[in-house]
Design a protein around this nucleic acid. Structure first.
Length: 271
DNA sequence: GCCTATGTTTCAGT
DNA sequence: CACTGAAACATAGG
């Protein structure tokens, strides 16, 4: 699930549950695959340590500790978080578990194991190394213009480029383009300045709306395209492949692949 | 068994 | 060098 709104929601969850609690033990189920540093180093660094604050750039989360080292967390396609006390409540797919002195545990869940945990000394250094652009939640028109400069490819894959608008994922990209009424395959260099400005505004507004709904899609406004993706939200009478209609003009929502990713759009509203 | 999947990286080809 | 498309990763769910 995790695009920027989910990661921001996880960040707030961690702020509410897991700060200022001494860490007594750390478990990582499949360190070879999901931990980017040595497991013993990771545990030695964190035992006796505590998380003091969190930060986020795009889909990348940072858990800062009192003594300095920062845990980096990326949720891949299926990452999630949990906080619980009883062993019996250990959630399915808990891939990393941080035990606190008060008996509670914070778990990093991830069925597909595409998520990654690591350590860094500085958020700024990590950002440079990963070439992450300015966070999409506060992306300005100037920053977006800069990111799209001299780009000729379709606008949608560029929105997914974490160097340009980190935090935008496949579903949010479709929503943003729908709200901005732009065709996903428009070449970036064909966008007029007013269209880039509209796009930047829609990126921020869609993300703010999604965060306000704690990334629960069924709570998104009814004029959002996202509902066309949630087939199980469709009326029981609808058949599985019955595409939903555009909330603006009722035209049938189309699906195609753009940049290799499933893309939903309204062929009438988006030009 | 078949297909799809909210992400990222890597590699081959143009 | 820039860009594109496909594959790979590992697993669940329909």
């Amino acid at each position: 699930m995790p695009e920027l709104p989910e990661v921001e929601t996880y960040r707030r969850f961690i702020d509410e549950t897991s700060l200022f609690q001494p860490i007594t033990e750390v478990e990582v189920q499949d360190p070879k695959r999901q931990l980017q540093v040595d497991l013993d180093d990771f545990r030695r660094t964190l035992r006796g340590e505590q998380f003091t604050q969190t930060a986020r750039i795009g889909k990348q989360l940072f858990l800062e500790t009192a003594r300095g080292p920062i845990v980096t967390m990326h949720f891949g396609m299926t990452g999630d978080v949990a906080y619980y006390k009883d062993e019996a409540d250990t959630p399915r797919f808990a891939r990393a578990i941080f035990h606190f002195e008060n008996g509670f545990k914070f778990a990093f869940l991830d069925s597909r194991k595409f998520g990654r945990l690591g350590l860094t000394q500085s958020v700024a250094a990590f950002r440079l190394q990963k070439k992450l652009g300015p966070d999409a939640l506060t992306l300005s028109t100037e920053e977006l213009t800069q990111g799209l400069a001299r780009k000729k490819s379709a606008i949608k894959p560029l929105l997914l480029d974490q160097r340009i608008a980190p935090g935008v994922g496949n579903w949010i990209a479709d929503e943003v383009l729908f709200q901005a009424q732009l065709e996903p395959e428009r070449p970036a260099d064909s966008l007029q300045p007013a269209e880039v400005d509209r796009l930047a505004t829609c990126i921020r507004e869609v993300l703010e709306t999604a965060i306000a709904a704690e990334a629960i899609y069924r709570d998104f406004p009814s004029h959002y395209l996202i509902h066309a993706r949630e087939w199980d939200e469709a009326p029981a009478s609808a058949t599985k492949d019955a595409h939903l209609h555009c909330p603006r003009c009722q035209t049938l929502i189309q699906k195609k692949y753009v940049g290799g990713r499933a893309t939903y759009f309204c062929p009438n509203c988006q030009v």
